[in-house]
């Protein structure tokens, strides 16, 4: 009984903490939005509007009211899902973002699969061969991935693998002549093309996806490798590893069944956190690969100074980050028997 209540209390505490962080996010984005030196009214009415028009728009935007009232209005807008219009497309910002999000999720998901598929085995390998040359090689390899300016690696990758070798597709999500050929039912091109039964579109999509996803995944794998290695080292020194060996298990079996089995929960949380960090790399890599996703949307609006769209993007990334943190926490609680 009391454990149930304790768990409830903890869940409530966590929810409150998330709510406070979300409120903080709003305050932050609100103030960054107001910091802008450019005049948002001018941006809308143009240079040669009459003072009357100017004042009208000024009042319309609520800029004549005190700051706290403006903030309340902003909060109300956000809570009701009203993020304003995009200057560039004239659409509601949130609709734009929902439209570009699948492209980014597709890229980031592919990337995290590559990153985890690379980082976890390498981390285990490094831990098992601690301080031997394999360990050092893995360390240099992963630090290298962590040190690449990803926008540059993306350009070099395009130059080498697309322009020179022709192994992969170039910019964008597919070859241009396929654009519009499959109906965008889910927004995920790989799924849509399969649903439409267009194999050639699917192939083209994979061809275009593989390079940016691999680069993103490689850069994300550094953190995953490091954490896997250190989690594994913790486990390898535990006494229960000796128990397993005494029972007659081989070294490989003890490593995979016992040590690795015991870090799986921790790894899930690390991968979830890395997924959030991937979004950061996605902003740069999408710019390089003309990937019509969230990152490109953000940078395009940065360039034209549409702060409304920019701050909405920032807010959404912040929310995704918080949710991923929460998710990794919840996963940990669910799957680690010791927390029950």
């Amino acid at each position: 009984m009391s454990t149930g209540r304790r768990r409830l209390r903890r869940a409530a505490g966590q929810l409150a903490s998330v709510a406070i962080t979300l409120l903080g996010l709003l305050v932050l984005t609100f103030f960054i939005g107001r910091m802008m030196p450019a005049d948002p009214v001018r941006a809308i009415v143009g240079e040669d509007a009459t003072p009357e028009t100017y004042d009208m728009v000024h009042a319309q935007l609520g800029l004549d009211r005190p700051l706290w009232a403006q903030f309340l209005r902003y909060m109300g807008d956000v809570l009701t899902g009203n993020f304003g219009q995009s200057i560039r497309t004239g659409q509601p910002v949130i609709q734009d973002i929902l439209h570009v999000m699948p492209a980014t999720i597709e890229l980031a998901t592919f990337a995290i699969v590559i990153g985890a598929g690379l980082g976890i085995p390498l981390g285990v390998l490094a831990a098992v061969n601690r301080d031997r040359w394999i360990d050092h090689a893995v360390r240099v390899f992963s630090l290298f991935g962590h040190s690449m300016p990803i926008f540059w690696t993306g350009m070099i990758g395009l130059l080498v693998f697309y322009a020179w070798l022709g192994w992969v597709g170039g910019s964008g999500r597919m070859d241009y002549f396929y654009i519009g050929m499959v109906p965008g039912r889910t927004g995920f091109l790989l799924i849509d093309s399969l649903l439409a039964g267009r194999w050639e579109v699917f192939r083209s999509a994979v061809n275009h996806l593989i390079l940016p996803a691999a680069l993103l995944g490689y850069s994300a794998s550094a953190y995953i490798t490091r954490m896997t290695r250190s989690f594994m080292l913790d486990q390898l020194n535990q006494e229960y590893m000796t128990t397993a060996r005494v029972k007659g298990l081989s070294r490989g079996q003890t490593i995979w069944r016992h040590a690795f089995g015991n870090i799986r929960v921790q790894l899930v949380t690390i991968v979830a956190l890395s997924y959030g960090a991937l979004l950061e790399g996605a902003v740069l890599i999408e710019t390089v690969f003309a990937w019509p996703g969230f990152g490109q949307y953000l940078t395009n609006n940065l360039v034209i100074g549409d702060m409304n769209a920019v701050m909405t993007c920032v807010l959404i990334v912040g929310v995704i980050f918080i949710l991923l943190n929460l998710l990794s926490d919840v996963l940990y609680r669910l799957f680690d028997p010791r927390t029950k």
């Binding site: 406070i20 962080t21 903080g24 450019a38 953000l298 920019v310 701050m311 920032v314």
Partner: peptide, 24 residues
Amino acid sequence: MRVTDIFLAFPSLILSLAFVAALG
């Protein structure tokens, strides 16, 4: 620490982007 957590809730590049966008 709550304020710190709020800043940590953003990937740093994206938050920097927002600041630069605002500051010019």
